[in-house]
Simulated assay, not measured.
Amino acid sequence: MEVRDFMIRKIFTVKPSDTVRELLHILNSNRIGGVPVVDDNDHLVGMVSDGDVLRYLAPKPLGIAGLVYIIEDGDMEDVLQEKLNTPVKEIMTKRNILYVSPDEEFEMAIRLLSKHHFKKLPVVNGAGRVVGVISRGDLINNISKRLLQPDNELFSLFG
């Protein structure tokens, strides 16, 4: 079985210039935890996740004065509103982006996801374009559907 057999083809992406606000809208409205960041030619330039957003939005203590400023009424909301206008390129992962190709054996995706504790991997074709995403949840779901059928040999191993 190849990655193409398990990948999600309906993918959501963002551009580096999109704002954190726009990113949050995509994540929330589609109930997903992260997306590839692509350039105008759909080439992978980074990844951004809900964890990246939370780490960015979390208050950072800057000494006593900084804590007092953030805790004052209304100021925290103002800080968050301002941060929502930040471009995605400021918070995305840009280095050592791992990905798989549609032709790779799905075992490679499983190894990468488990070894690096990733939740999802972009699927990139030979032209460098993002053509899908493969996630831990999708793998588990598809493995269950495809391999744990009563007429499948593997079913007896788990049943």
Rank of each mutant, 00 (worst) to 15 (best):
V20F: 00
H117K: 08
E105Q: 03
P16F: 02
K15R: 07
T13N: 01
M76I: 09
L121T: 05
I97M: 07
E104T: 11
S135G: 09
N41F: 09
K15Y: 06
A127Q: 14
E90R: 12
L84F: 14
P122V: 05
V123K: 10
D42I: 10
E90I: 13
F118I: 08
V88A: 12
G137P: 08
Y69I: 11
V14F: 02
G128R: 08
L62Q: 09
E90T: 12
H25R: 15
A127C: 14
D103A: 07
G128I: 10
M76L: 13
V20K: 04
H25P: 14
Y99W: 04
K60C: 06
L139Q: 04
F118Q: 03
M47D: 01
M76Q: 08
H25C: 12
H117V: 05
L62R: 13
D78L: 12
V123A: 11
T86V: 11
V131I: 08
Y69C: 05
V133G: 00
N28A: 04
E82S: 14
I11H: 06
I134Q: 08
N141E: 13
R111W: 10
L62I: 10
L84D: 14
H25D: 13
A109M: 13
G132I: 05
D138R: 11
D78E: 13
R129E: 12
R55M: 12
Y69M: 09
I11S: 11
R55V: 04
D18W: 04
H43A: 06
D40N: 14
I11K: 07
D73K: 08
A127P: 15
G46Y: 01
F118M: 05
H117F: 02
V48L: 02
G128E: 07
M108R: 15
V124A: 03
E72V: 02
R95C: 13
N30I: 01
V133C: 00
G128Q: 04
M47E: 02
P87Y: 02
V131T: 07
V14Y: 01
K120I: 03
L84V: 15
T13L: 01
V133M: 00
E82D: 13
R9K: 15
